[in-house]
Design a protein around this nucleic acid. Structure first.
Ligand SMILES: [Mn+2]
Ligand SMILES: [Mn+2]
Ligand SMILES: [Zn+2]
Ligand SMILES: [Zn+2]
Lengths: 159, 159
DNA sequence: TTAAGAATGGAAATCATTATCAATAAGAGG
DNA sequence: CCTCTTATTGATAATGATTTCCATTCTTAA
């Protein structure tokens, strides 16, 4: 229950105000839903959850807020191929920062991973350096995904 | 001008028939357009081009055919974030097989590259091995993209 | 040549996301 | 606490890419 608490500003309030945005109940609720989920939620899924506590909030506001948050870099917006955008917190208490995804082609589960990116980072840097040399392409960001079978689906594989 | 040639079956005819599909003028035209382009075409762009020679072909057929080709693995279907699917040949004369993309965030140009550097190959192998160990995730495919500035846009950068 | 049913295209339907716009409320200043 | 400016909101309509329908046409095995 995302109770409005006027006394303690949340971790993102400052950042929000700094961009000239106002703090509103719908926005608090949306951030609350995102920070309490470890999944990759769609606008409608967020709408459903917010709706439980704030039935008055409209889907339009969900989209608008997600757009702002996305532009501010507070959330990531992904397209996993199911014809709807999916979002997840990128910072704050439960934020995951930059990470990559493992996608099970059987059960559609999406697994985040960032814990061994250190090893990957060195190789990525080298690759980016080489891309600059060969294609004169200056990379500033990347998207990396592995498709395959998750643990559970591999076991079921041996029906 | 994709002239229907009943005498010489194209390289994909066999594969097509093998899947139980019939060879038709619209399908030949679509494959023709794809094989003569080095871009990542949208359904509508393909429709426009096909339309030049076969005004009777409908957009519905374009979508249906692209779906078949995609499922057969003859073409790749990508989503580059401009809210429409984009396709490109994956095999045949000008097919590019598996490759990665460089995407210019300024001019939206998409650059294909398949001449992977050692670092990148090592990155993939090591990462996939580690993913199996840590997450029991068996990777069978991957999607890799670098976002940044292409050569041209870097120069314009220094307005 | 012929018949079975695969393929087609135009129109209507879907469905996620946007655009509109009048009503509402955040919050700076008093 | 009160006021005023204007950012924000939500209902509704509009968009736009992709699908679904279905009667008609065309491919192809026999
Ligand atoms: Mn994630
Ligand atoms: Mn490509
Ligand atoms: Zn799975
Ligand atoms: Zn560019």
């Amino acid at each position: 229950m995302p109770i409005r608490n006027g006394l303690r500003p949340m971790w993102w309030h400052g950042r929000f105000r700094g961009c000239g945005y106002r703090i509103t109940a719908p926005r608090e609720a949306i951030l609350d839903v995102l920070s309490k989920s470890d999944k990759h939620l769609s606008a409608e899924e967020i709408y459903i959850k917010v709706h439980t506590y704030y039935p008055a909030v409209g889907l339009t506001t969900i989209y608008r807020t997600l757009d702002i948050l996305s532009n501010m870099g507070l959330i990531f917006k992904f397209d996993f191929g199911d014809s709807r955008a999916r979002y997840e917190l990128s910072e704050g208490p439960k934020g995951k920062k930059h990470h990559h995804h493992l996608i099970c082609t059987n059960c559609n589960r999406i697994i985040d991973y960032a814990d061994f990116i250190d090893e990957e980072i060195k190789l990525l840097e080298q690759t980016e350096k080489e891309l600059l040399k060969r294609y004169n392409f200056k990379s500033t960001n990347h998207l990396i995904r592995f498709y395959g079978l998750c643990e559970k689906c591999q076991k079921n594989e041996l029906n």
